[in-house]
Amino acid sequence: MIRRDMLKWGALASALAGAPAAALARAGAGLDVLLLDTRFGEGAAVDMGAARVLTFAGDVTRIWYDHLDRAWRQPGFVVGGITGADALFVLETLAQQQGRKVVARNVLAAVDGIAPVSWVIAPVHPSVLA
């Protein structure tokens, strides 16, 4: 991964830090898609700039099957999210299999026992670098 991208994603992740609602308002640019876990508030109304926004409530199955699994088979594709730690755990495990890693993460204040996390998953293996 090149250093410029690392810095960009790092900056994005810190922009995502803070309370989920504040983070939502500042997320967007630099990502191919932004995932929002609606257990921590509805994100649909927020303007996400360039990024496409996909929402789900904890269970990542559909988003992964319909979008990420296909996208991650091709080079590139940077995903950001504000999701529960449980959803990130699943996505991180899936990402590793496809040459991708969590390149930035911030744990936010817990809501109802599950901590929301803002994160960025980006390609790192030569076979998927854009």
């Binding site: 257990r39 904890g58 269970d59 990542v60 199955t61 992964w64 529960g84 730690a85 449980d86 959803a87 755990f89 699943v90 109802d112 026992g113 599950i114």
Partner: peptide, 26 residues
């Protein structure tokens, strides 16, 4: 309940927020 119909799912990983006590697979 997807596995009952042979449909793969990852939903089990959200049990932690579904009222099954402290069981959180992540």
């Amino acid at each position: 309940q997807k596995p009952r119909y042979g449909i793969p799912s990852l939903e089990i990983f959200t049990v932690g927020s579904q009222g099954y006590g402290k069981f959180n697979p992540s």
